[in-house]
Amino acid sequence: MDFWNIISTSLTTAIGPIAAIYVLAAIGLNMHFGYTGLLNFGQVGFMLVGAYGVGVGVGTFGLSLWAALLLSVACATVLALLLGIPTLRLRADYLAISTIAVAEALRLLYRAEFARPLTGGVYGRQSLAAGFIAANPIPSGRYGVAGVEFSANQLWTMLVAWALVAVALLLTWALMHSPWGRVIKGIREDEDAVRSLGKDVFVYKMQSLVLGGVLGGVAGALLAIHQQNITPDQFMPQVTFYLWAMLLLGGAARTFGAVLGPMVLWFLLTAFDETLRSLLTIGALPFLDGGDIGALRHAFVGLALVLLIVYRPQGLIGNRKEMLVNVK
C-alpha cells in the first residue's frame, strides 16, 4: 500500500474543482439550514436545474456561456419560489418532505422521454464547456507539487470555482452581520416570536431560500462546465445527503463550516476509497469486489452523519455552547 499516494490523491480531491463546487452548494445549504433553519433536503434539485441551465442553454439552444449561466440562476430562482410558496407558511417538516420529493421528481422529469429534445433525456447534454476552455488563460501543462497535481484546465476551473466561493462567503458574511441576518437567525430560533415583532417571516424565508438555491444552482452550472457533460442521474438524492454530512461536519451556521466540511469529507472519502481499493488489489478483502466500494462509501457517509449528531453536533468548528443552549 502506497500511503503517500493515498494522501496525495485525497489532498488533490480535497482542493480540486469538485470540492469547490460542493463548497458552493454547501454555502447555499448553510444559508438555508445553518442560518434560517429551513430543512432543505433537496439541494441537489437546485444543482440539477443550475446544471441544466448550462446544459440546455449551451447544448440545446447554443447560447453563450454567460447567457446560460443567467438561465441557471433564473431556473434556481423559479424553483425556490415554486417550492417556497406552498411550503414556507407550513411547519418545517413539510418543506423537508417537499424538497426531497420535488428534487427527485425533477430528476425524473429531466430524464423523461418527452423532455429529450430539450434535456437530452437519460443521455443528458455533452460538450458544454468549449467557450469556458477557450477562455483559459493558463498555458497548458501540469501544475503542482508532490503528487498533488492539476492540469491547466482543472486549474482554470478551480480558480473560477474558488473565486466564486470567496464571493459567496463574502456575501453571506456581510448579510449575516447585518440586521437582515439578525432577522434570519431569529427565524431559525423561533419564527412566531419574530412574527410577533412585526417582521414578515415568509418574505425573509423566501429570500433565504432563493439565495441558497441560487448558490446551489451556480454550483450545478459549474459542475456542468467542469465535466463538460451532464446526465440527470448524477443528481441523485445522495448528493443532498453528502452536502448535509459536509455541512454538519464543518459546523452549521459558521461561515467557514461550509468550506471546511466539504474539503475534509472529500479528503476522508477519497482516502477511504483509495485505501479499500489498494486493499482489494493486494487481496486483503476477499469478500468484497470493486463495485462495492461506492456502496460502502455511501454507508460510511451515513455512519458519519449518525456519529456526528450523536457525538459532535456542532461539527469541527461549531460552538458547543450554542448547541447546548438550543435545548428547548
Partner: peptide
C-alpha cells in the same frame, strides 16, 4: 456515464 456518481468523477479526475 463513468461519472454517474460524482465521487467517481472526482477520483477519475485526479
Amino acid at each position: 456515464a463513468a461519472f454517474m456518481v460524482i465521487p467517481g468523477a472526482a477520483a477519475a479526475d485526479a
